[in-house]
Amino acid sequence: KRPMNAFMVWSKIERRKIMEQSPDMHNAEISKRLGKRWKMLKDSEKIPFIREAERLRLKHMADYPDYK
């Protein structure tokens, strides 16, 4: 399994928030909203998620050195 990228790290957190607020919303609609919101974020707002994704990538490389 591949490590999460910055969007996936961010969307995992945000998806929970949306599901708590709107439990009946369909997954496809949540995904569309998340995509739009991610694109609207400033680069500076994405930095913590980019850093976390990089940390996960490095950990994945250490844990699975033969992964292609």
Rank of each mutant, 00 (worst) to 15 (best):
K1G: 14
K1N: 13
R2K: 12
R2H: 13
P3W: 05
P3S: 14
P3I: 08
P3T: 11
P3A: 04
M4W: 08
M4N: 07
N5Q: 01
N5C: 07
N5E: 09
N5D: 14
N5H: 03
A6F: 00
A6S: 04
A6M: 01
A6I: 00
A6K: 02
F7T: 01
F7A: 02
M8H: 12
M8P: 04
M8Q: 15
M8C: 10
V9K: 00
V9M: 04
V9I: 13
V9T: 02
V9L: 14
V9S: 01
W10L: 01
W10D: 01
W10Q: 00
W10V: 01
W10R: 00
S11F: 05
S11C: 06
S11N: 06
S11T: 04
S11H: 00
S11A: 14
K12W: 01
K12G: 09
K12C: 10
I13D: 09
I13E: 11
I13G: 09
I13C: 06
I13Y: 11
I13H: 10
I13F: 08
E14G: 02
E14T: 00
E14L: 00
R15Y: 11
R15A: 09
R15K: 10
R15S: 10
R15F: 04
R16Y: 06
R16F: 07
R16N: 11
R16V: 12
R16K: 07
K17C: 05
K17Y: 04
I18G: 02
I18L: 09
M19N: 06
M19E: 11
M19S: 08
M19W: 02
M19Y: 08
M19I: 11
E20S: 07
E20V: 06
Q21T: 10
S22N: 14
P23F: 01
D24I: 04
D24S: 08
D24M: 03
D24R: 05
D24T: 09
M25T: 07
H26M: 09
H26P: 15
H26L: 10
N27T: 12
N27P: 15
N27E: 15
N27G: 11
A28C: 08
A28S: 13
A28G: 09
A28T: 10
A28V: 08
A28H: 09
E29W: 01
E29L: 01
E29A: 05
E29H: 03
E29Q: 05
I30G: 03
I30S: 03
I30K: 00
I30R: 01
I30L: 09
I30M: 02
I30D: 01
S31R: 07
S31F: 08
S31W: 07
S31Y: 08
S31E: 15
S31N: 15
K32P: 03
K32R: 11
K32I: 10
R33N: 12
R33E: 15
R33K: 11
R33D: 14
R33M: 14
R33G: 04
L34W: 00
L34Q: 03
L34R: 02
L34G: 04
G35C: 14
G35L: 14
G35M: 14
K36Y: 13
K36N: 14
R37S: 11
R37Q: 13
R37W: 06
R37H: 10
R37L: 11
W38I: 02
W38E: 00
W38R: 03
W38Q: 11
K39A: 12
K39N: 12
M40V: 03
M40W: 05
M40R: 06
M40N: 12
M40K: 15
M40P: 02
L41T: 02
L41N: 01
K42F: 03
K42I: 05
K42N: 13
K42A: 11
K42M: 10
K42W: 02
D43Q: 10
D43W: 08
D43I: 08
D43R: 05
D43K: 09
D43V: 06
S44G: 09
S44E: 15
S44D: 14
S44I: 12
S44F: 10
S44C: 11
E45M: 07
E45T: 00
E45H: 05
I47D: 10
I47W: 09
I47K: 09
I47Q: 13
P48G: 06
P48W: 04
P48N: 04
F49M: 07
F49G: 02
F49E: 01
F49R: 02
F49K: 01
I50C: 04
I50R: 12
I50F: 12
R51D: 10
R51L: 10
R51Q: 15
E52G: 02
E52W: 04
E52C: 05
E52Y: 04
E52K: 04
E52S: 01
A53R: 02
A53I: 02
A53K: 00
A53Y: 01
E54N: 08
E54W: 04
E54D: 07
R55A: 09
R55M: 05
R55Y: 06
R55V: 07
L56V: 05
L56Q: 08
L56S: 09
R57I: 06
L58K: 09
L58C: 10
L58P: 05
L58R: 10
K59Q: 12
K59L: 14
K59T: 13
K59H: 14
K59G: 14
K59S: 12
H60F: 11
H60D: 14
H60T: 14
M61D: 13
M61L: 11
A62V: 10
A62N: 14
A62R: 09
A62L: 10
Y64H: 15
Y64F: 11
Y64C: 11
P65A: 11
D66Q: 10
D66V: 04
D66Y: 07
D66I: 06
D66S: 07
D66A: 09
Y67L: 14
Y67F: 11
Y67V: 09
